[in-house]
């Protein structure tokens, strides 16, 4: 599988994606607009709370091409963050008290400045979270020491594993991803990750392998822990359940499989005002590979910039201006407010 970009798919265009989920059919046109839904619960416009997470997207380059990827990442993508932009990020981190730096991608480890940046963030005394796809550790000899590197810098590792069985995992993330993920998890466990008392957190991310919503986070975590421990001796700390966002390659899947209408209707019908109040965009600032600022990684992929005056990039970062902005929303936001809610940290309710 290749990215939407290299296949020349019309869905490579973010405006086409927004049009598809908002206007593609009579049913979709008839669904309430997300901002109206917020307004009906007195939450429009949505405003940020205190910024807890500075999320840096190191680029779209990845060793995997997952079918549900909201980034349209893959080995054929070349957009990655430059050293200059990382330096601007460090200046912002140093000038603010944002406690957590969340590094994502693509596979952020493929960026040549990745290790330097992690070390600098650690030096600033902030918690670093890396969204590691696991297979990158085995992708090339130069990545084999990532578990030691993570442990040395007390990195909080968050890794996707859609299921504790091969078929579900490989259908979503590619052939042999399951076996490689299990091997990588064992290497992380060997460094102390996910082991009680080690202080090295290893969290896993579950997202549904199809057009349905995630089940209860606590129940799935119990199932995952039982299965991974008994079958492979693997331990981890927490499981985050994340709803698949109806954008990019997952949107392509929904369209091609005839599930788009039903999925969007399901998200809208499962709207939960409590989840809306706890959406991650309220405590996160997302930085694109080119330094542009967004309310979240999903808005970043849809080219919906922050609506703040005079602070649009990491180079002109102004915490005060950003703090008084209204968060930009559209129909995809229903993905974060359905059921128990969904965020980069899992369920929100």
């Amino acid at each position: 599988m290749k990215s939407l970009l290299s296949r020349g798919s019309p869905l490579d265009d973010s405006a086409a994606q927004l049009k598809a989920i908002g206007e593609f059919s009579e049913l979709l046109r008839g669904l309430p607009r997300f901002r109206e839904k917020l307004a009906s619960h007195g939450m429009n416009p949505l405003h940020p709370a205190r910024t807890e997470i500075f999320q840096v997207n190191a680029g779209k380059m990845c060793n995997q091409t997952c079918r549900h990827c909201h980034v349209d990442a893959g080995p054929d993508r070349r957009e990655i963050m430059t050293r200059e932009t990382f330096e601007a990020c460090l200046k912002v981190i140093a000038a603010t008290e944002i406690p957590t730096v969340d590094l994502t991608g693509g596979a952020p480890e493929m960026n040549p400045h990745f290790r330097w940046f992690v070390e600098e963030v650690t030096r600033l005394g902030r918690k670093t979270m890396v969204r590691c796809n696991l297979t990158i550790i085995l992708a090339n000899e130069r990545f084999r020491d990532l578990p030691e590197f993570f442990a040395r810098n007390r990195v909080h590792v968050v890794s996707s594993l859609p299921y504790f069985e091969k078929a579900h995992t490989d259908r979503q993330r590619g052939d042999q991803v399951f076996e490689k993920s299990i091997e990588a998890l064992k290497l992380l466990n060997a460094q102390g990750y996910g082991r009680e008392g080690s202080g090295l957190p290893l969290d896993l991310v579950y997202n549904p392998s199809g057009a349905f919503l995630p089940g209860a986070q606590a129940s799935l975590e119990t199932e995952f822990k039982k299965a991974l421990q008994s079958r492979y001796g693997i331990t981890f700390n927490a499981l985050y359940t994340i709803t698949n966002m109806p954008i990019s390659r997952f949107l392509e899947y929904l369209q091609n499989s005839g599930n788009l209408d039903d999925y969007m209707e399901r998200l809208v019908n499962a709207y939960n005002p409590a989840a809306a109040a706890g959406v991650m965009c309220r405590n996160t600032i997302s930085v694109g590979w080119d330094g542009k600022l967004y309310d979240c990684d999903f808005n970043q992929m849809l080219d919906i910039p922050v609506a703040s005056q005079g602070s649009k990039t990491v180079f002109d970062f102004d915490a005060r201006a950003l703090g008084s902005r209204s968060i930009a929303v559209d129909q995809h936001c229903y993905g974060c407010t359905a059921g128990a809610g969904s965020s980069c940290g899992g369920a929100t309710v």
């Binding site: 299921y163 579950y206 549904p208 995630p214 089940g215 129940s219 799935l220």
Partner: peptide, 9 residues
């Protein structure tokens, strides 16, 4: 749908 959502194979 419900069994898939609840993590059944």
């Amino acid at each position: 749908t419900d069994t898939l959502e609840k993590g059944a194979t």
